[in-house]
Design a protein around this nucleic acid. Structure first.
Lengths: 228, 228
DNA sequence: GGTTTTGATGGACGATTGTCCATTTTTAAT
DNA sequence: ATTAAAAATGGACAATCGTCCATCAAAACC
């Protein structure tokens, strides 16, 4: 019953948001003008003001939307993971490095917004939200690992492991941003697990699936389906 | 000697570059207009076209300048470091996290340029150059460490340690970008060394001042039934 | 001191920016 | 079928963008 009226309305809202994200991913923020947006969305000039009250709010909504998409993808993956903390961490790491989450489009959008987040308050939240939610997921898992392991200074160890894992993931994203061609997802995951295995050998040494053989075997480079 | 003519010329060139960097750090790239730049530099409108041929080239020169500054700072620090590879790595890490290098101004500039680097070729080089040079420094040190330690698969270990350390540093920078207030340099360094100590206990265990907890006790009997 | 040379100035210029509204079109209600 | 309401249109508009050049000021040379 949604009403054709409201249905179209929402559809156009999403078209505008999608157009912003496409343009930001492809041309960058500075070249994402109102003209560019409405052309991509195939809508008229006034729609931005009508639906969002201005370009600024639209960009903010697009940032929020992108953030939600990122989390939906990650949490969907997490639901398919087992209950053990090491399984959850492994799923988070592999999910965060998977092609669905870590691809040219998302990385470009993410870093474009970050670069401008200084001024745009609402966009900074976008990054903060991600950080906060992801941190919570990882920290929960490490807390359990550390508790089981009866580590001295458990809370500190969990905190440091969380902070370190997040930093590693961030670094890998940056790596992908700067070298999308030569980026290797398997290598990125292997390195993270190598660090984790060194810190928690009982939990990650085997599950990490670290292959000692890293002769630069002609691993079939990921197809790298750079969209857009 | 220098000629008052040429002296002023160079001085104005630098004033323009400095104005761009100040503006980018403070207001972001999108708000760094020609008017903004010449106002900060206290020069006339035509200077940009005269000295750089256009705004685009000026911004590019500013990115290059910022990159050089970063490296000068880091290499100056490195000269005061000892010869041992662990000393050099520790100096790089602490230098990269020091207030002289990692501060709001630099981080804002760095990420602002990164966010737009997709389009601006020359700015992408700026990031690449940093990456290439820094990677070389770190990799050299790890190669020596790994060689001394007679690690199996030495080259792979050095490569992974380099990649991981770089990713950790990048992640810490991102952390600073998003939370400059609550960022803790000591904590960041401690976490990195904690990871390194876990990987190379003989080299970093003591200098890190944190005892790695990886030594499993006599009665570890992992409570986890599944693969540990 | 006069002349040449070059750096520096600031306004003119067309292009493009984002906002806003009078108008038209479409859907829902009567 | 008619009316009321809402959504969509596209152009007008002032403001701002970056470029460029005619003009001016001053350092360098003779």
């Amino acid at each position: 019953m949604a009403g054709k009226r409201e249905q179209n309305r929402e559809q156009n809202r999403l078209a505008l948001i999608g157009a912003v994200l496409d343009s930001v991913a492809e041309k960058g923020i500075s070249e994402t003008s109102v003209s560019e947006i409405i052309q991509r969305a195939g809508l008229s000039r006034g729609m931005i003001h009508l639906h969002f009250g201005g370009k600024e709010n639209l960009v903010q909504a697009a940032a929020h939307h992108s953030s939600e998409e990122y989390y939906d993808g990650l949490e969907a993956l997490l639901q398919t993971a087992g209950d053990s903390p090491q399984e959850r961490i492994e799923m988070i790491v592999r999910g965060d490095l998977s092609e669905r989450v870590l691809n040219r489009r998302n990385v470009n959008i993410w870093y474009a917004f970050r670069g401008e987040s200084r001024n745009r308050t609402a966009i900074a939240e976008h990054s903060d939200t991600r950080d906060g939610r992801l941190r919570g997921m990882i920290h929960n898992a490490f807390s359990r690992i550390v508790r089981e392991a009866e580590t001295p200074d458990a809370s500190g160890a969990a905190r440091d492991a969380t902070h370190g894992t997040l930093a590693l993931l961030e670094g890998m994203w940056t790596d992908f941003l700067l070298h999308p061609d030569r980026f290797d997802r398997e290598e990125a995951a292997r390195i993270i697990f190598r660090f984790l295995a060194a810190m928690f050998p009982a939990h990650f040494a085997l599950s990490g699936a670290i292959r000692p053989q890293q002769e630069k075997g002609a691993a079939p480079a990921a197809p790298e389906a750079s969209d857009s």
